[in-house]
């Protein structure tokens, strides 16, 4: 019984949140990896893309709410999300037209494009604060829990409860659907295959008559959708604050690189590796241990390896280790 309680405690405070966070990172890292594999640069504006898509979704959500529209037990933001994604698509395509296309035609080096994306990031940064402001926004509504801690306790008779928030369930479900759809698209459709070919061998792809403009456009569209979904899910689960989205860029990049920059499978794996290690290292194990060991051995301290303030340090430690041991990442990146 105590062992079960320990497991439930671990699941409630560690596994479920880490799984949710991992999904959000995986979606974010997929966007980064997609741009890297097609356009060959690290897109620093990705975090802000997530923020922009989310901001657009929030504005629309508020409008829907003011019109009295609701999605039953699900958050209204899910209705607004496709339109938020559309706004992000338009923004990215416009940025490509104004900024990146010029450098691409000049055959600019990746580092130049990276710096350009940094500029784009600052522009988005200002744009977002201009539209929605720098404050913290909570925009989730509908039912709060799928299973609340109290229901769980009543069901199982355990003293520990396992709560699963609606947002967590949605996050996992949406991620599964989106990742499956993306892999299906890349593996089986003509356009998806042409994107893989382009990322594999650009010159040969051109020789085969693959239109680079189409490939690049589709890459931006997919990235905008992935970024918006990742941003909205993160915002629903926690809250929306533009600065947080700038910060989340760091673990997202760590996830993409750990998995192998350019490999979609790696991005997903990397997202979960980073999320689970961040949560595992900053988790306080005191109560879990308390259930397992005899009472006289129970620890007095929190048994927390690192304070949560250091969670970014965890992703970067993993990043450094992976870069030292296996620089191409776990799944050998470079191509789709």
């Amino acid at each position: 019984m105590d062992l079960l309680n320990a497991l439930v405690l671990l699941a409630n405070f560690m596994l479920v949140p880490a799984l949710t966070y991992g999904c959000q990172l995986a979606l974010g890292a997929l966007g980064v990896t997609l741009i890297y594999s097609i356009l060959r640069f690290s897109n620093f504006a990705h975090g802000e893309t997530m923020a922009f898509g989310t901001a657009a979704t929030i504005l629309l959500t508020w409008w829907l709410q003011s019109m009295g529209v609701s999605f039953g037990p699900l958050p209204t933001a899910l209705i607004a999300m496709p339109f938020g994604a559309l706004a992000a698509v338009l923004l990215l395509l416009a940025s490509d037209r104004v900024v990146y296309r010029f450098h691409r035609r000049q055959r600019a080096t990746p580092v130049l494009l990276l710096i350009a994306s940094l500029g784009v990031m600052f522009f988005y940064n200002g744009l977002i604060r201009f539209i929605i402001g720098p404050d913290d926004r909570i925009f989730t509504d509908g039912a709060r829990f799928i299973v609340s801690a109290r229901e769980f306790k009543a069901m199982t008779g355990l003293s520990q409860g396992l709560a699963i928030k609606t947002t967590q369930g949605i996050t996992v479900l949406m991620t599964v659907i989106l990742v499956a759809a993306l892999f299906w698209f890349l593996t089986y459709t003509r356009t998806g295959k042409s994107m893989r070919a382009y990322s594999d061998n650009r010159d040969l792809a051109l020789l085969s008559g693959i239109n680079p403009d189409t490939v690049v456009r589709v890459a931006w569209i997919l990235t905008a959708i992935l970024a918006t979904v990742a941003g909205v899910l993160y915002g629903l689960d926690k809250s929306f604050k533009p600065f947080t989205y700038l910060q989340i860029l760091l673990p997202i990049f760590a996830a993409a690189i750990v998995g192998g920059l350019g490999s979609p499978l790696g991005a997903v794996a990397g997202g979960f590796i980073i999320a689970f290690s961040e949560v595992a290292v900053t988790f306080a194990y005191k109560r879990v241990i308390g259930y397992i060991v005899p009472p006289e051995w129970a620890p007095d301290t929190l048994v927390q390896f690192l304070s949560t303030d250091y969670k970014f340090a965890v992703s970067f430690t993993i990043l450094v280790i992976v870069l030292l041991i296996r620089p191409t990442g776990i799944f050998r990146g470079q191509t789709l």
Binding site: R196, A197, D200, N201, L204, L207, T335
Partner: peptide
Amino acid sequence: PQTSNVFTGM
């Protein structure tokens, strides 16, 4: 072409 004439990952 003489080199890189296949899509290696496909």
